[in-house]
């Protein structure tokens, strides 16, 4: 492959993030993706209306996140007494029991990071939708990259399922409204990520700036 090495920085070439092999950026159609010929890592994806759709999913996700915090997740009944818990109660319970490290970990991974991901996406994409420049797209995109591994809502859902199954053995447990909202929040967030095409993001930013 002939590669023009005389560039300052370029969007015409891309190095595979997992093996560093240089590829020239092909013209791929919407809905298609390109993988590294050497290691198979995903290099490019193109989505139709990527930024609009990602914003719509992020706003939907935020709405469900708010709903998920308003009602109980699970309700548990035993001998006529009942208890229910909200999303943040797990983190608070760890904190109160003296396991403050776990309280912080659970708070970040189930509340702060999932919310922050949605807020960053919205504050990035909403101004762009209105033809304005976001306050600091560089910072926002870097923040998004670093937040991503710590937002663990989908794993939290499995945690709820396991807790539910364990409790069923000795008490009556029922699913609260918030659990449904929480599941929908996770679906919307995943969709917001999947539809977001970063190269479209950068080229749109360039358009707005000029």
């Amino acid at each position: 492959m002939e590669i023009d090495k005389d560039f300052s920085y370029t969007e015409a070439l891309v190095a595979c993030p997992e093996c560093d092999l240089i590829h020239s950026v092909p013209k791929i159609r919407e809905g298609e993706q390109g993988r590294c010929i050497r290691c198979g890592a995903l290099l490019f994806v193109r989505h139709k209306n990527s930024l609009n759709r990602s914003l719509a999913f992020a706003l939907t996700g935020l709405m469900f996140f708010i709903l998920a915090n308003m009602f109980p997740l699970l309700t548990f009944q035993l001998e006529g007494q009942s208890e229910s818990n909200r999303l943040i109660d797990g983190a608070i319970a760890f904190w109160n029991a003296g396991y403050w490290e776990l309280g912080i970990v659970v708070f970040i991974s189930s509340v702060v990071a999932p919310l922050a991901v949605l807020l960053v996406l919205i504050t990035l994409l909403l101004p762009m939708q209105l033809n304005r420049f976001p306050f600091s797209p560089q910072f926002q995109i870097r923040l998004l990259t670093h937040l991503k591994p710590w937002a663990m809502s989908e794993i939290f859902i499995l945690g709820i399922i396991v807790a539910f199954v364990k409790l069923q053995d000795f008490a009556d447990v029922s699913v609260g409204l918030s659990l449904i909202a929480f599941v929908l929040m996770v679906v919307a967030t995943v969709m917001a990520y999947l539809t977001l095409d970063e190269s479209a993001l950068w080229s749109r930013l360039k358009e707005i700036r000029t």
Binding site: G90, I155, V162, A163
Partner: peptide, 28 residues
């Protein structure tokens, strides 16, 4: 890697939910 957190979340839910004093209590 992240999927191992299931147990930690499960515990956080149980200790936040099951605190009926003498009847049933879960502690970490």
């Amino acid at each position: 890697g992240r999927w191992s957190m299931i147990d930690i979340f499960m515990i956080s839910i149980l200790i936040g939910l099951v605190k009926l004093q003498a009847l049933a209590t879960v502690t970490a």
